[in-house]
Each structure stands twice: as C-alpha cells, then as structure tokens.
Design a protein around this nucleic acid. Structure first.
Lengths: 136, 136
DNA sequence: TTGCGTGCAAAGGTTTTGCATGGCA
DNA sequence: TGCCATGCAAAACCTTTGCACGCAA
C-alpha cells in the first residue's frame, strides 16, 4: 500500500476533477482517456477507483446499470452533510440541516446502527424535475 | 400485457409473501422453488419480478452484488420504512420509525426534494459489526 | 534494485435475450 | 385456437482476478 504517483492515477484524478458530468462509470473514464491517446486498462481504473473510494477521495454510487463515481477531494466539508440525488436529472444536492444532522445519532441510539453519511445518498426527485412534470 | 395466472407467477408471489427474509435475490427464489420440486427457470423469475415491480407489487433494491426484491403487496406498511445496509457484513436492515418517517416530509418541505424511501439505502455499520470489533 | 502498479486476457457473477415449446384464456 | 409465458442456453454486461512486464521510489 504505497500509493505510487503513477501516470494513470493522475489521469483518472485529473479527469474526475474536470469532468462536467455529475458522475461517471469506470467505462466512461477509460473511453475518455483513451480518446485522448492515453494507454490505460479498465482493470487499472477499477483498482484505482477502489482505492480512491477507500481513501475518501471519490464516492461510489450503486446504480441500476452499474457503479458510478464522483470526485469529492480532500475537503472534509462533504462528509458531514447529506446527499440527495435526483433520479431523473442526476443532480446531486448537498444539504446541511440540523434536522438531518440529528438523524445519525438517532439511528445509532435507537436502532444500533452507525450511519456513514459520506457513503449514503438518498434518492428521489429534485424540485425542478418534480415541478417540471413527466417529460422524457 | 395479459398477466396470465401461470403456475410460476403464483409460486413466486407465494414465496415472496411467506418468505421469512425481508428481501431475496432472483437466484434465491429459483433455488428455493426448485428445492421444493418446482420446475422454474431463472429467466422466468427475472421477467416476472420485472412486471411485479412495474405493477408496484414488489420493490427492487439495487445493492452491491446485485438486485434484491421484496414483496410489498397492497399494504402501505412497507412503503414508509428505511433501509440500512451494513458495509461490513452486508446485512440489510429494515427500520420502521416515526422519526424516520418524518424525514421525507421534512426534506420535501424545507429542501424541495421528494425522497423516495424505496430507492434509498443508508450505509454504515450494524450493531453486531460495530460491537464485534474489526475482525476480518 | 525492490516490489507495486499496469495491461491484457480470462474468469466470475448477474441479468437479458432468442427461440422452440407448453399452457392459459 | 391464438398468444403469451416458459425453459434452456447463449449472449451481454459489469467487475474481479492471474500473470508477466514496466515503472516509481
């Protein structure tokens, strides 16, 4: 476990940082980097992503067609609040709220379960998609 | 879309209704029904489950290793509770709690986001794994 | 030089699909 | 009888793993 600074790792992080999409799959990453001429294997992307998730640098979402990843960075800010992901437009909302903040302690005390907010995403519909109606 | 009342469909519903586990995979269903002597294919189970989910009879959870299904039926009881998945042992806990039930309305009112509890899974550590320490 | 990280290919697991057959209405 | 649903097997995916080689430290 030495976390070498390899070219592939830098490429992945660089892409995740600059990526306009809210979340990408391992396949997306490989395709994008290869389209820019980089030589990189899918297994490498999975292996690096796994580490980044463990290290808290990247967040992993389990979705219907497979897993998606999002760059979070070293900022601690993202670890204490809740994440709401819109099922329609894919937006990821960050919510800070004392009511929600009391949720984890409640669950721990009353249900014996220690929630990890940094791993938890609540799914639903954001305001815009809810009001926008059912197009598409 | 005729929804024939086939033997296989009845077997699946019957098992889901009586199943002691809160959620099962498609493979679980096939194995169980075959162990009772039924002749049923995995594809049939997937096709039937897909319909039941569309019809609201069954709920589908996307988890790390695959999808799990839970019978909901016409009862409203199962639609309002939360799901907690242990990151260590993989257990999926179903929690019913008025405090948690108030969460979705709060988020909708204060943050404009309509949470879909049936799609949301909170990650963390269950009591046993938390108390059991760090073996494995 | 050491040994971790990589690419490739193969394996593993889950879910979907094609096609001939069987069963419900 | 007319279709839909089924079973089987193959295919389609996504992800992980094994192995020899290359590169970071």
């Amino acid at each position: 476990m030495a976390d070498y600074r390899t070219k592939q790792r830098e490429l992945i992080i660089s892409y995740l940082k600059s990526c306009p999409l809210p979340h990408v799959t391992a396949g997306d990453i490989v395709l994008h980097l290869r389209s820019e001429g980089a030589k990189i294997g899918l297994a490498t992307v999975y292996r690096q992503l796994e580490r980044m998730v463990e290290g808290g640098l990247v967040r992993k979402f389990i979705l219907d067609g497979g897993a998606c990843y999002q760059y979070v960075g070293e900022s601690e800010g993202c670890r204490e609040h809740f994440h709401l992901k819109c099922l329609r437009c894919g937006a990821l909302l960050h919510v800070d709220c004392s009511y929600l903040g009391a949720l984890a302690p409640h669950i721990l005390e009353h249900h014996g379960f220690e929630v990890d907010n940094s791993r938890t995403v609540m799914y639903g519909l954001c305001r815009r998609c809810r009001e926008g109606g059912g197009e598409e």
